[in-house]
């Protein structure tokens, strides 16, 4: 067992999978010699060489399009978009080809690409470096989207993503990259099943749904609420697409109340989809409307105000109390 940060855990998963499967290759901007600007791919070029850890020209569409071609020829590329805010230049290749190639060829070609990209606010970064635009990718048929909430989840979820036969967008909550350490097994851990949520805390009074960088804040809020006698059941989504809505609905059928947390803007965010699913799966058990604790419908402000933008434990707890008092 070793205590690892999320950056180290992702690095470990990449190295393990590259050792296990020669078809796994990494490509992107600064991923080789530099080891990635967050050091996620640190030292991998030394072990696996520049043919498998490829520093590319600065061109996101190129990285994505070449990854599609590599996957069609039998590799398992793990391209890095340096920030999710830069992935839009590669968006066209993801939407028009990566998500559709299996479907277009009626199963004749698979494109098992894992697109890693750091997302989210909280690291005092420049404009375009802090957004949380997961719904761009969850709205694409044919793409799976996963978001780890800590080092252990990052390691096992990435392993599952790389072994998955379908394209996966792997959202990395960069605010958690070095926020805390967790014990990560030296042995190979069981990969997390993509498409399955996990209950991180049992509770009977309400269901609190979160993922990624908001999960620790939801857990903190749950602790505060418990001091006041409210027991929240915290669900960590881990996969946003395909969404494990049955796990959410099952929990809400027990608790009768639901609060969803995400840092993406309110309107048309994941909370809207989750609220609709709760309506379909737990309507008669609901004792309050589904509450959403999210970013407002504005761009992430420059970093002096980013913590004001982000949901925090206090805002989450406040929403939970309002739901209890409805």
């Amino acid at each position: 067992m070793a205590e690892l940060t999320m950056v180290e855990a992702i690095n470990l998963a990449l190295a393990e999978e590259m050792r296990r499967d020669e078809r796994v290759v990494i490509l992107g901007e600064d991923v080789g010699v530099d080891g990635g600007i967050f050091r996620v791919t640190k030292d991998l070029i030394e072990e696996f060489g520049e043919e498998r850890v490829i520093d590319t020209p600065l061109a996101e569409s190129g990285i994505m399009g070449v990854s599609v071609g590599m996957a069609m020829r039998g590799l398992r590329p793990v391209p890095e978009m340096q920030f999710s805010g830069f992935s839009y230049l590669g968006f066209h290749q993801i939407e028009s080809h990566l998500s559709r190639m299996r479907w277009r060829t009626q199963g004749g070609r698979q494109v098992p690409v894992v697109v890693r990209m750091p997302y989210g606010a909280g690291v005092r970064a420049l404009e375009h470096h802090s957004e949380s635009r997961e719904v761009f990718y969850t709205h694409m048929p044919g793409i799976k989207l996963v978001v780890p909430s800590g080092p252990r989840a990052a390691r096992t979820l990435l392993v599952a993503a790389i072994r998955d036969p379908d394209p996966v967008v792997f959202f990395e909550p960069k605010a958690l990259y070095r926020a805390f350490r967790e014990e990560v097994s030296d042995e190979e851990d069981e990969p997390i099943t993509i498409g399955k949520a996990m209950i991180r805390r049992d509770g009977t009074d309400l269901t609190l749904v979160a993922y990624g960088a908001m999960l620790p804040r939801a857990m903190e809020a749950a602790k505060t609420l418990a001091d006041g006698g409210i027991e929240a059941e915290v669900i960590d989504l881990l996969t946003l697409s395909p969404l494990d809505h049955e796990a959410i609905a099952a929990s809400v059928r027990r608790t009768g109340r639901c609060v969803v947390v995400h840092e993406a803007p309110l309107s048309y965010g994941p909370g809207a989809e989750i609220a609709a699913r709760v309506m379909e799966g737990a309507f008669l058990k609901l004792q309050a409307p589904v509450m959403r604790v999210t970013g407002p419908d504005v761009n992430v402000p420059y970093f002096a105000r980013e913590q004001l933008y982000l949901p925090d434990a206090e805002r989450i707890a406040d929403a939970c109390r309002a739901t209890m008092n409805y």
Binding site: R52, M64, V66, G69, M70, M72, L75
Partner: peptide, 17 residues
């Protein structure tokens, strides 16, 4: 224009294989 990149990826992958 999108397919040109696939051609590049295909032959590059073949070489790595």
């Amino acid at each position: 224009g999108t397919q040109m990149l696939h051609a590049v990826g295909i032959v590059h992958a073949a070489r790595l294989l």
